[in-house]
Nucleic acid binder design. Structure first.
Lengths: 222, 222
DNA sequence: ATTTAATAAAGAAAAATATCTTTATTAAAT
DNA sequence: ATTTAATAAAGATATTTTTCTTTATTAAAT
């Protein structure tokens, strides 16, 4: 934990390890399920068995959220859910734009699960005349060309890119110009953006590469 | 590097770090683009700038594939592409089943990009009568019920799960029974499978959690 | 031919992450 | 009331991954 000269914790010290953040939604999903099953308390070791991870890791991850459990009992399921939702921001509203209304884009627009995380896609953009003017699950599809020179800053913070790889960078530039603060990129490219803009990549090929590599190792081990 | 009693390297020693595997498709995508732009040679430092990662990391990642470059010149783009494709298995054929023909399932079935990686979804399964009997982009949708007791082992190695979370585990059990070797799970649950079966999770919430967390940190830093 | 600068490659160090160990707590059993 | 066993929490260790450093190579410039 980094300390400043005066001994006061720096803001940076709030940072929670990314792997821990990535695990938290799994805890939340499992806990919601356990709550629906009527469970009141759950211990870290039991959560660990469910999720097949190290028990102490569960304790540490949960400690980051400020949750405290009681020995011999564990955590109060309902409380832990609330704490996690609050910590992850899943109980707040997050509005997003999506650019690229292909198969993946449509799927994300229609994905009901985002509601569980407070995220709402409020508008979609594309260059395809056939798609412009339609709406997908209530989300209107606009002509990207008309929004190129969008004046003024928007209150939308998240931009989702589901365009082909070739146009992803220029879309990212556009989003930066719009004042988007975080870009969720599904196109298989690395985007160049100013340092104050967050980029989160979801590269489908990376996952596939890991699968194929493990399969290959399995073959070799035979 | 683990050694056996006799000092001979164990098979396990072939293992390449997963983070390196995850980065490799990015190299491949970029290299294909550079090749299309007519570039013949590329050095690791230049690749590093493109991808915004450490130059030595690029060298090390590429070294895992067996690729060798020349000082002052770099790597031969065309050769490197081939080496990476071979290493990742993207130049071989990988057939897969998908279970769950919702928005995400349909999107994956229609996703042309999988061809770039040699993966082909050959059949889809669902329990929805409306979907059964149809086909999506040439991929037939079968009644899952009819395949429950599929006799004998299949030559299909990869099973993709895009069902709701609630049914994911039973689908995984089914796939294990079919002799599927690797499961690519998009449902937000941890699957319990025998140790010889590979599970790769693509949890959309994890990515979202990271984005929201970074946004939160950004806010705090203001 | 010699020098120079860019680079691959190998090795060392640092940072991040996960796992293991110990201690203190506390509900339940005795 | 006392003991026991399960557990959270804190700390230490180990592992993994990344970054830094050094060395050797080689194409291009002199």
């Amino acid at each position: 934990m980094e300390k400043s000269v005066l001994g006061v914790e720096k803001r940076k010290s709030v940072a929670v390890p990314e792997p821990a953040i990535r695990r938290m939604p799994s805890y939340l999903t499992l806990l919601r399920q356990l709550r629906n099953d009527g469970l009141e308390y759950i211990s870290a070791p039991r959560l660990a068995v469910h999720l097949d991870i190290d028990p102490t890791q569960v304790v540490k991850d949960l400690a980051y959220t400020g949750a405290t459990g009681r020995p011999r009992i564990g955590y109060v399921v309902a409380d832990l859910i609330e704490i996690l939702e609050e910590f992850l921001g899943f109980n707040r509203k997050h509005e997003a734009f999506i650019i690229g209304v292909g198969f993946l884009g449509s799927a994300l627009i229609q994905y009901q699960g985002f509601r569980e995380a407070g995220m709402k896609i409020v508008a979609a953009f594309d260059t395809d005349k056939k798609k412009i003017g339609t709406d997908i699950a209530g989300v209107p599809v606009f002509d990207l060309a008309k929004f190129r020179d969008l004046a003024g800053r928007l209150h939308i913070t998240i931009g989702i890119i589901t365009t082909p790889a070739a146009s992803a960078q220029q879309i990212a530039d556009l989003m930066v110009g719009w004042g988007i603060k975080a870009i969720w990129n599904f196109a298989p490219v690395s985007l160049k953006v100013p340092s104050h803009v967050i980029v989160q990549n979801t590269h489908i090929y990376s996952n596939l590469a890991v699968i194929l590599n493990k399969l290959e190792q399995l073959k070799k081990a035979e």
